[in-house]
């Protein structure tokens, strides 16, 4: 980081649904390899913004590029450059681990050899090669969670979007998951993550906090804590979000 290579650039992003303004002039940039925490209360407009950045929804106005591609015209190119994992597992539960990797690798147009290579690499990292022919539904939730993440980055995307990836997960798995996130970021994959766990906000390089459709704060956790004279990110969040109408 620090070389100012941006993978997401949004300038005055606006999204309206009728008269309702879901995203109100969002302006931010995310650097390559950065872990960017995208926080906000329920209904603050996070999901709308993420859907726009993933090329799933057109913005009303604003200049936005993701992985160098235009979100108005190059949505298909964007989809190839990103990975996505939601709070609910994105794996096919009645397929085996191997089959899930083959399926997703196929969707991303990876070669058979590349898929094999990546599958082996990912399973080795998680220490679960012996489970490769197990049906996903039979696996513990913690393993499924980490697998979902591995599948989301198997095609080496420029950016991976994680939407509440650790909801309902035990505290040990939650931490192992963050170690995976750090590793992916170190390899240059940008991580764009939402969470309701405020301790996880501390693990991000920078954090933005949305309130009622606007970005009310955007900085490193340390600077935010200084600025709001808060001892942790939970306090920062409460100070900002409690103002909301």
């Amino acid at each position: 980081m620090g070389n100012n290579e941006y993978v997401i650039e949004a300038e005055n992003l606006v999204k309206k649904f009728g008269s309702f303004v879901a995203n109100d002039n969002l302006t931010f940039k995310v650097e390559k390899g950065e872990i960017f925490g995208f926080l906000g209360a329920n209904g603050a407009g996070k999901t709308t913004a993420i859907r726009i950045l993933c090329g799933l929804l057109l913005p009303t106005s604003g200049k936005i590029t993701v992985a160098g591609q235009n979100v108005y015209t190059q949505t298909e190119a964007i989809k190839k450059q990103i990975g996505y994992m939601s709070q609910r597992f994105s794996l096919y539960e009645d397929l085996t681990i191997n089959e899930n990797f083959r399926f997703y690798g196929g969707i991303y147009g990876m070669s058979r050899i590349k898929i094999k290579e990546k599958t082996a690499e990912m399973l080795d990292r998680l220490g679960i090669e012996s489970l490769k022919n197990s049906i996903v539904a039979s696996l513990p939730l913690g393993i499924r969670q980490k697998l979902s993440f591995s599948v989301a980055i198997m095609h080496s995307p420029q950016i991976v979007f994680l939407d509440e990836p650790t909801g309902g997960v035990d505290p040990i798995t939650r931490r192992q998951f963050w170690e995976l996130i750090y590793e992916a970021a170190a390899k240059g994959i940008t991580v764009f993550v939402t969470t309701h766990y405020m301790d996880e906000a501390e693990y991000c390089n920078r954090v933005s906090i949305m309130v009622d459709g606007r970005i009310e704060a955007l900085d490193t956790p340390r600077n935010l804590k200084d600025k709001f004279q808060a001892k942790n990110m939970d306090e920062v969040f409460l100070k900002l979000a409690r103002k909301a109408g």
């Binding site: 906000g40 939970d234 979000a241 409690r242």
Partner: peptide
């Protein structure tokens, strides 16, 4: 049963 799952920190409080 899990009334606060997926709920933001302010609403949880």
């Amino acid at each position: 049963d899990e009334p606060t799952t997926g709920v933001d920190a302010v609403s949880r409080r």
